[in-house]
């Protein structure tokens, strides 16, 4: 059985339809990247999966007892709210200090337990978010533009970490990216969304091409890959597929 199965999903805010006829399945251990321009409904899809927004049509079924680890797009912690990394790690799960410490170590940010969340750098913050999402050993990891605000080497390191997580725990990964052409190379599938599923494919690893080097530099260790959109198929609707214009 699929971990997550979305059938013919439609999401609307008032009269404004943001998603229609979306089908999506996530199998155990799979890494799926969803790309799409701003306003394409990526975040709405994720919000529908976690139950934050009611579908206007269609169905979403989660495997019974599915444990979700969620990494939000950005987490603003108000200046007035003091919270240590350790307390944050225990936000929704009852875990020991030792578990927190080893989760942080596995995330590559040891010794942060006593630090205030507000004192962390962008990269440390994202890794703490990831470590917290992983602490109750989820079956699926949902990431909403988790690399936003990180530079390219930072994103690459973050992606390598997620790949490592999948290797170690076998947890499935569903992530959203606003980058249309550069995706995590370990993605098993890439789904391009623009109100509906425009195209679906696998990322092309072109690490040896000179263009690739020019584009990514050499510090990314093959964590990033290009995705070529294949929009030559026919839909029974007539809106333009203007990715480049929307970027």
């Amino acid at each position: 059985m699929s971990l997550i199965s979305v059938k013919n999903l439609g999401v609307a805010y008032g009269a404004n339809t943001v998603l229609h006829h979306v089908d999506l399945h996530l199998e155990p251990g799979e890494i799926v990247t969803i790309v799409g321009p701003n306003g394409s409904g990526k975040t709405s899809l994720l919000r529908a999966i976690i139950g934050a927004v009611e579908p206007a049509s269609g169905q979403i079924s989660l495997k019974p007892g599915l444990k979700i680890g969620y990494v939000p797009q950005r987490l603003h912690i108000d200046q007035t709210l003091p919270i240590t990394v350790e307390r944050f790690m225990r936000l929704t799960d009852r875990v020991t200090r030792a578990t927190c410490a080893s989760a942080l170590e596995a995330a590559g940010v040891p010794d942060l337990l006593k630090r205030q969340m507000s004192q962390l750098s962008g990269g440390q913050f994202q890794r703490v978010l990831l470590a917290r999402a992983l602490i109750n050993k989820p079956d699926v990891l949902l990431l909403d533009e988790a690399t936003q605000g990180l530079d390219q080497p930072g994103s690459a390191a973050f992606y390598r970490q997620i790949e490592q997580v999948r290797r170690d725990t076998g947890c499935a990964v569903l992530m959203i990216s606003h980058e249309l052409h550069v995706v995590m190379s370990a993605s098993d599938r890439v789904i391009c969304l623009n109100g509906h599923v425009c195209c679906e494919g696998t990322p092309a690893v072109v690490a040896s091409a000179p263009e690739y080097r020019a584009l990514f530099g050499t510090g990314t260790g093959g964590a990033l890959a290009l995705y070529r959109h294949d929009h030559d198929h026919d839909h029974d609707h007539d809106h333009p597929h203007s990715h480049e214009a929307a970027e």
Partner: peptide
């Protein structure tokens, strides 16, 4: 829920 709405929903 105070920290992040989506985080709350996902939990």
């Amino acid at each position: 829920a105070t920290l992040n709405e989506e985080l709350a929903y996902a939990s």
